[in-house]
Write a protein that binds this DNA or RNA. Structure first.
Lengths: 242, 242
DNA sequence: ACCTGAACACCGTTCAAGT
DNA sequence: ACCTGAACACCGTTCAAGT
């Protein structure tokens, strides 16, 4: 009768970096970033805190590895063919969904992109979006700007959306998503009319909207900008054939 | 002969929320987020850790207040008149510079936007960008999408740029900014050609670029998207006159 | 080679006691 | 009303000791 937590005792498989990262993701998903503790992790793995250090250098590396694992699973390549922009939308929605499923991901990505852009996680995201930009026929001179703009919009927007979902589902909040958006909208409408005229005017639009739809509206906007500033050239046949 | 840290003893003015937040920002700027400690803060204010709690509820509120103070100072309204888009660029560069001056700001903003969009910091940023969007003549139906796209691009891009600056200046790195970008570029060129063809191709463009110029390229791209999807209507005379 | 678990240094927060 | 500083609970990390 182990009383301290789920998954009490059994452990025939030895510890491994993979198993540790998997448990870390589960912990992050269920109790959030503040709940990811070496002691809690050790409990869940039926071992002591020190054992983890044999496989992982420290907490920073653990968070990096957890983020990378989730991102790697999220960026499945879009299948070729389809209307222009379909590939971008597929990749964008993959990241959007991943952030929604793992609300801690948004803050982690921001922290890691804005700390070590040379890590493994930044190139992974950049590459998956960039391929779709290239498939769009954007000339090479526009690749960096176009891909950056898409990436920042996707991650920022997904993060804000996950905030809504997470806050609505927060323990004790007991709110439906619509209720929550309603609350935000009402809060915005209560702002000082002199200082926040614009935000107040927009508050009503926030109330009833569909997130994915609004997210895709933003993608469409950035895509329109890409097409306007970097008119697509004919695509190499390879992209279409294979 | 106080030996523990700078600003050793004198304190005639009483403690106040304002003074505490100011000291917190200084600490964040000089030693980063991990250096912001109630004990270090108390030292700097020549008091004990407990005293701070009389004025501020806890660390979360302290970080929120520090972020808000810096953002409030950064979003000076752009002066009316000027070419279309000038206002957007002014506000964007204000935020860009703030993030560069306070490298901890990027992660804080991401964390706070993706946690409490009803706080004071989100509407402040949203409002300052939104006003410029409205001044652009964008019809109301496009306000939310256009402002969101700009905001996410600005904050994401500024954060990534600050990362470069901060990493280059990190203690022990002793790198110039150009050197650092060169290192990132070289790292990207060393990626697996099969898995990262796009990122490798772009690596060269990263090497010699000017940050602000590249940042403004992205702003131009988003602006082009806004104009394409939400063609400006005639602006109300008020905007021009006053 | 891999794991155990006590121990260390440090942190956010509380609170009885002061002024 | 405001400040002091010891104390508490908790955390990341280390490391001598085990297998």
């Amino acid at each position: 009768m182990a009383t301290r937590s789920r998954r009490p005792d059994r452990r025939q498989e030895p510890l491994s970096r993979e198993r540790i990262v998997e448990a870390a993701v589960e912990l992050l998903d269920s109790v959030g970033e503040s709940g990811l503790t070496f002691r809690a992790l050790a409990d869940r793995l039926a071992t002591g805190p020190g054992a983890i250090y044999w496989h992982i250098a420290g907490k920073a590396e653990l968070l990096t590895a957890a983020t990378d694992a989730v991102v790697a699973a999220a960026v499945r390549p879009a299948e070729p063919g389809g209307a222009p922009g379909d590939g971008v939308r597929t990749v964008a929605l993959g990241l959007f969904d991943a952030v929604e499923e793992h609300p801690w991901l948004a803050a982690q990505l921001a922290a890691q992109l804005s700390r070590s852009p040379w890590g493994t996680v930044a190139p992974r995201i950049f590459e998956s979006i960039g391929r779709e930009v290239r498939a769009l026929g954007v000339p090479e001179a526009g690749w960096f700007t176009a891909t950056s703009a898409l990436m920042h919009y996707i991650l920022g927007s997904a993060g804000q959306n996950a905030a809504n979902t997470a806050s609505a589902a927060a323990p004790g909040a007991g709110m439906e998503r619509a209720e929550f958006l309603d609350a935000v909208s009402t809060a915005w409408e209560g702002l000082d009319p002199d200082a926040y005229p614009f935000t107040r005017a927009v508050a009503e639009q926030v109330r009833g909207h569909d997130d994915r739809e609004q997210f895709l509206d933003g993608i469409a906007l950035v895509l329109a900008g890409i097409v306007a500033l970097h008119p697509p050239v004919a695509q190499p046949a390879v992209t279409v054939v294979r």
